[in-house]
Design a protein around this nucleic acid. Structure first.
Ligand SMILES: [Mn+2]
Ligand SMILES: [Mn+2]
Ligand SMILES: [Zn+2]
Ligand SMILES: [Zn+2]
Lengths: 144, 144
DNA sequence: AATGCAAATGCGAATGATTTGCAAAAAGAA
DNA sequence: TTCTTTTTGCAAATCATTCGCATTTGCATT
């Protein structure tokens, strides 16, 4: 089990390839997404964006998140059933452990668990397209 | 890996124990929940309820789902980030495989994967309170 | 069975997150 | 620069869910 790492891909190229225009709002939103370690929701992205350009609208943030999600450039999460939260899709796949007390999100990756999921799906006659694994936990008292 | 089974618990007793009143809407909603195999959302529960008593309101469905969730009598899911869907909590714990083509929800249970989750959380210094594992897949062409 | 009171309900209005219609602005090809 | 198409900002709409409040109901007590 190892922690996930982040790398900075060339999103502008991806956008062009998808036949989509590179606009000022999109550039700003992509910068925010690539330069953060957390999992912000649309409102948080919006607030960070208007600090750079106060003419950006919340609608555009939502539209851009939908676009990037369809392109596969970002992932959408709904921890605790709250509003959608996003992160860039690049880097290795990982899952999340949410600290129920603090709200902290910890990323982890386990080949074992990924393989097990495949096995389970296959036993049921399915191929996995994607999956969602979220652990909700509390810091343990016991020694690690 | 085994499939989950359902049993019919005495909810009226649980309600009394929790100090809440047994009302007509609650009885009807509980009947719906205990007699279905699927994972209906509030609107679906509401429609099934008004067939039995057309004076039941959607608000009451929502309030009842919140009550039952707090009591631990039902579980709430948000497959695909859609509206909350519910199922009775009784029976063994299980996770879900969602057929991305048909929307079918298949239940499964794997001790291995549950154990692995515990291990992962423990390695990160956490105790799991609850978790969410959803596999999204498509029927495989390959022989099982 | 009738009474009293707190708890629950139905209704409609409010909320929060997200989407949409549309006219104006910007991107990019020519 | 001009032209065409996409994208944007804004406001209004939509969707799921919650809330306020007057009325009804459950149920413990006479
Ligand atoms: Mn992440
Ligand atoms: Mn289930
Ligand atoms: Zn995973
Ligand atoms: Zn599980």
């Amino acid at each position: 089990m190892k922690h996930a790492i982040n790398q900075k891909p060339d999103y502008e190229k991806e956008l062009r390839k998808a036949g989509v225009r590179i606009t000022r709002p999109r550039r700003i939103i992509l910068d925010i997404l690539t330069s953060t370690e957390d999992h912000p929701d649309a409102m948080k992205i919006f607030h960070r964006a208007i600090e750079i350009d106060d003419s950006i609208s919340l609608s555009t943030v939502y539209r851009t998140m939908n676009l990037l999600e369809e392109m596969g450039a970002i992932h959408r999460h709904a921890f605790n059933g709250g509003p959608s939260r996003f992160e860039q899709a690049h880097g290795e796949h990982h899952d999340h452990l949410i600290d129920v007390d603090t709200g902290d999100v910890i990323e982890f990756q386990s080949d074992k668990i990924e393989k097990l999921q495949e096995e389970i799906a296959r036993a049921l006659g399915y191929d996995i397209i994607h999956h969602r694994l979220e652990l909700y936990g509390r810091k343990s008292k016991r020694p690690e």
